Simulated assay, not measured.
Amino acid sequence: MTSAADIRSTLRHGRSSIGAWLTLPSPELAECLAGCGFDWLAVDMEHGAIGIETAGRVFIAAERHGVAPFARLPSADPYLARRLLDQGCQGLIVPVVESAEDFRAFASHCLYPPAGKRGVGLSRGNQFGDSFDTMLNHFQPLLVPQIETRAGVAAAAAIAALPMVDALFLGPYDLSASLGQAGNFATPAFADAMAEVRHACAEAGKAAGIHQVAPVLDGLEARKEEGFRLIAFGTDAQAIRHVFAPLKA
């Protein structure tokens, strides 16, 4: 199975890692996406309709196809993060991060002692004890703060410099809203913000990430050319609508 360590190595070697994005509470749909060649599958718990029980079943579906299960949290909730990691989550995308110190405090709950203060117990994530020592001594989830406000952009360099951060993930819609023109990605302010986040990543040797929401390959290639390497491509719902939208014409 693709692991957090595999994706971390991919990013550190300057290669791209592409993920699917699940918003609908369906392990069967997750399995369909997991069989399409993605490296990881993110359960969207911020804007999607997926709870923790369904997330666990989605993780199983992803693993069946060798795809790393991720989650986008609804907030920097350390105790939900702990539960998802215990369910086998390999990576966490954390929305609206605006402070390096706040993210450091959150991340401490995701790392086992002595690096952090994650609770230690038997769970699905360590195969109910069968891989307990391996997980305790070697596992570190991929940790990805989202930069999606003016304050986040201002703090991007400090956040990217944190040793436990693997990438910064730019949230284009929320960032454009924070800049005063929601959904307008053509403003100079938005272009400057994107450039600042990418520069922060480059200076820290971390990957820049983004969500290419429209499920079109030209858009995916454009994000790669812009320098983004951790890319969520489309969503389950958007992919379905993209295929059937011509029926409305």
Rank of each mutant, 00 (worst) to 15 (best):
L22T: 11
T23W: 09
P25E: 11
P27H: 08
A30R: 00
A30M: 08
E31G: 12
C32D: 13
C32F: 15
C36W: 11
C36V: 08
C36N: 07
L41P: 00
A42W: 04
H47A: 04
A49M: 14
I50L: 10
E53S: 13
E53Q: 13
T54V: 15
A61G: 08
A61N: 00
E63C: 08
R64D: 11
H65F: 14
G66N: 09
A68I: 01
P69I: 09
F70D: 00
A71I: 10
R72C: 04
P74A: 08
P74W: 02
S75M: 12
S75G: 14
A76I: 00
P78E: 09
P78H: 09
Y79W: 15
A81M: 07
L84K: 03
L85P: 02
G88F: 05
G91I: 00
G91F: 02
V96G: 10
V97F: 05
E98R: 13
A100E: 08
E101K: 12
E101D: 15
D102K: 12
F103A: 07
F103K: 08
R104V: 07
R104F: 04
A105V: 14
A107C: 10
A107W: 02
A107N: 02
H109Q: 10
Y112C: 09
P113F: 06
R118F: 04
G119F: 05
G121Y: 07
Q127V: 13
F128C: 08
G129C: 10
P141A: 02
P141D: 03
L142R: 00
V144L: 03
P145E: 04
E148H: 04
T149M: 04
T149C: 05
